[in-house]
Design a protein around this nucleic acid. Structure first.
Lengths: 320, 320
DNA sequence: CTGAAAGCGCTTACAG
DNA sequence: CTGAAAGCGCTTACAG
């Protein structure tokens, strides 16, 4: 195996010129006779010559030719099918792409479980999704970082007004006359707890306390939790779900126990994803695309005002 | 600004050794006295020396240090929010990630409209989604490529058995006694046409021909098409939708015209996405994750049997 | 317009 | 164990 890829020297030799001339001819620089240029190019094409990007980079000092910057989207989620099942991630990617706009920056998606080993080739910046405290801080130490949802203290983040959203959902249920309210909350993450706090605040000191169960944002757990809730409190006339996927589980539990959605039991979700629209589910809409776009924007231009809380809005549909 | 990043030569000079010795000391190669190694390393640390990856790559001939391979997922879709709205893409990403497994290969997502300019830094391979003939062939010329759904002739692809799926949907409607069948088909893409052909074959020569309208896989167009269909043929008792998003539009048209889903009009979608589950929609399930995984698998190991058609299965839910 | 030469920053046989 | 030297493949002043 001696036939390596041809080098500039090969081309120059075959064309009967110096390497310098060959280089100029190929790069279309000034000061090359038409004749030489043509000959060199013809030879190069024939030999299948491709400039060696690494060598070019070294010689010019320019960042490795063609090497594109990249932004990493890091997703922490135990479910390998997370991107299939949770519209949230697709929405975040949409927002990230929007922020990237026309810039020639690659968007890399990574689902991670543990903190990856030190990266030899760190990205321009990272968008952290569901990356909890310790890991978030570790990434921040390694480079530019913005989180979607609160991460470690000191790590810039953008998040929906979860507390406000929870509040909106509760107010809606109260206003529409629901009396016996249940809830399937989320896991012990900041975002889920904020929703819970906002929701429960409305019922503080109410005659009927909220019947609550803990979910983990998955369909399966939500279904089980809802069944449990209904067994514990059969007279429930409303259920708040910590996210839309959770709400799907609740809807199934309702269907299976012969309850009519809305008529018997109102359901309110959280996310405002396409899922909510498909299921005709009342849901607290959070602008995930905008959040992600703002986050990536901040990555690209840290001088911009630090990201913040984005307001949620309640979208009332047939389920309440 | 003369203080560039320090080079190996700087380190060597400061440590009072040759560059060769410095190199060995830093790379932990054999044949370096403990004393020298320690001194060099100390100096390197102090100077903040970082080896120049490009130079290393050139010198060793090894692929640029730390440079990770990458697979590009190229999505052609006019909608900037495509990843938000269509679960298909998230599912494809899930499958692609699954195929990548533990390998240290980056997954890059790109939504493109036109054929990007020649890439200086081509990826290991590309997964083409919705990339039509000409562009597909162009990418194939540039490097390793597999398409999700048929692209240009000669371009390897993996796709669901669309024809068979259309057939399954039609048979289901006939078997459940639907007589006046409508359909909102897709755009003039191979995949949409295969679904249509498979569906229509069942009704060839039927007493009541299928009342059809053309959609484009979007919610808005599907809604409009369904309204038109219902105006043209008010007695419709079933509608086949070319994809789940299309079905969502149909469902809305049904709701708005006061028709009950299933009781008055059966609806069958195509995709089997989370949307179908959320909307309690009967749908032809296609294993997008498996398709994408098979495609990326083939990218990684072209020796594997060429990808093929994957079977679809009908999931009956409340809408039919 | 063209070629000889130096150089990008690092590595690696080869002597010593 | 250590250093002088050549080389990775290309570019770019500098003469001519």
């Amino acid at each position: 195996m001696t036939d390596q890829r041809p080098t500039l020297a090969d081309v120059a030799r075959a064309a009967g010129v110096s390497r310098a001339a060959a280089s100029r001819a190929i790069n279309g620089a000034y000061g090359t006779s038409e004749a030489v240029r043509q000959r060199v190019r013809a030879v190069a094409a024939e030999l299948g010559y491709e400039p060696h990007a690494v060598a070019q980079a070294l010689a010019t000092g320019r960042p490795s030719a063609g090497r594109r910057e990249r932004v990493e989207v890091l997703i922490v989620d135990p479910d390998p099918a997370a991107l299939s099942v949770k519209p949230f991630y697709g929405r975040a990617l949409t927002g990230a792409m929007r922020a990237l706009g026309d810039r020639d920056i690659a968007l890399e998606v990574r689902r991670v479980s543990t903190l990856p080993a030190q990266d030899d080739d760190p990205p321009y910046g990272r968008l952290l999704i569901n990356v909890a405290g310790a890991a978030g801080a570790a990434y921040a130490r390694r480079g530019r970082v913005v989180a979607l949802g609160r991460s470690a203290p000191g790590v810039a983040f953008v998040a929906p007004d979860n507390d406000g959203g929870g509040h909106q959902a509760a107010v809606h249920l109260v206003k529409t006359g629901r009396k016996r309210v249940g809830a399937v909350f989320g896991p012990p993450t900041p975002c889920a707890q904020e929703r819970r706090d906002g929701f429960l605040r409305v019922f503080a000191g109410a005659a009927q306390p909220v019947t609550a169960a803990d979910g983990d944002f998955t369909y399966a757990r939500a279904y089980a939790a809802a069944r449990e809730l209904l067994a514990r409190e059969p007279g429930l006339d409303a259920v708040f779900a910590a996210c839309d996927v959770t709400a799907m589980g609740v809807l199934r539990a309702l269907r299976e126990t012969g309850r009519r959605v809305a008529d018997d039991v109102a359901v309110v979700g959280f996310d405002g994803s396409t899922l909510a629209e498909a299921a005709d589910l009342t849901s607290v809409y959070m602008p995930v695309e905008d959040e992600a776009a703002a986050a990536v924007q901040h990555l690209l231009d840290p001088a911009l005002p630090a990201p913040a809380r984005l307001p949620t809005t309640l979208t009332v549909r047939g389920s309440s």
